[in-house]
Computed example of a mutant assay.
Amino acid sequence: MGQAGQLPLRERNKQRTVQRIIDAAFELFQTTGYHQTTMDAIAEKAEVSRATLFNYFPAKREILVPLTNILYRERVQPEIQACLQMQPTTLQALHRLFLSIYTHILTFPDLYRALQEGSSHQEKAHSTLSAGIGFSESLLAILRSGQSRGEVRTDIPLEKLAQYTGAIYLSLFFPPRERQAEVTLHAEYHADIEAVLAFLETALSPGAVATSENNNQEER
């Protein structure tokens, strides 16, 4: 019997196995590329059987969620926390967040492509970018800071504002772009986030509330 609060041995062994698989995939994706890495290669490097690998990750795409989680937690989140300590405007903080995601996650070998692999994978790609990686928490922190300075509207619950903002950002990835040179993708991504920020500047502004109320009165 383990100590109080300690996970059972079986569960700890499971976690170690999963971590070995993720670490192996992480290294192979970096050195070989996502598309060039096979499940057999991951199993061999992680020193697990093929059956064990598929038991934890039925498809290579499934590894993207914990991988993205690691990249976000270790590289993006510290940048955003440091950025917020400098008291940037809401748009400046969102700009830093979107650029940091691109720099530390989307430029990881083949990851951008993997997230755009066909319309049938849109739901999976959305969950990869948004679930469990702290993205929502970062948006909440940025928008909460903006509200404290009167830069962000308060007529909509903060959680909903973060949800809407995240959905607009994630929409940049769909429909998937045709295969292009990375330099082109880089330029298009930067242009896209500038357009998104221009839209959010109006959508998040407290002035949007007054404009909406005036329009409603005119319609009556």
Rank of each mutant, 00 (worst) to 15 (best):
S138E: 13
A191I: 09
Q3L: 12
R10K: 14
I80P: 03
T211A: 14
R75K: 14
S127Q: 10
T90G: 06
E137L: 05
H104S: 05
G207L: 12
L129I: 12
A162I: 08
L140I: 14
S136K: 08
V65N: 03
A141I: 03
F108L: 02
F54T: 00
H126G: 01
Y72P: 01
I101K: 10
A43Y: 06
F57M: 02
L200S: 11
L143Y: 10
Q85H: 12
T17W: 04
I101V: 15
Q15T: 03
A4Q: 04
F54L: 01
Q30W: 09
Q81E: 14
T165A: 09
G166K: 06
L28Y: 00
Y102K: 11
I105R: 03
K60V: 00
P58K: 00
E194Q: 15
H104W: 15
N69A: 14
H121P: 00
Q81D: 13
R12E: 14
L170P: 05
S136F: 08
I22L: 15
Q92N: 08
S171F: 05
V48M: 03
P206S: 11
S212Y: 07
A93G: 05
L106H: 02
E218N: 12
Y102I: 04
R12F: 06
F98M: 15
E117Y: 09
E117V: 06
Y189T: 01
L170E: 07
I193H: 07
V209Y: 09
N69V: 02
F108N: 00
M1F: 06
R73P: 01
H190E: 11
A167M: 10
T184R: 13
P109E: 00
E213Q: 14
A24S: 12
R220V: 13
A162L: 07
Q147V: 08
G146T: 12
L185Y: 06
R61V: 00
A187M: 08
G207R: 08
G132C: 05
E47K: 10
L200N: 10
G33E: 01
L99F: 11
M39R: 05
V209P: 05
A195W: 02
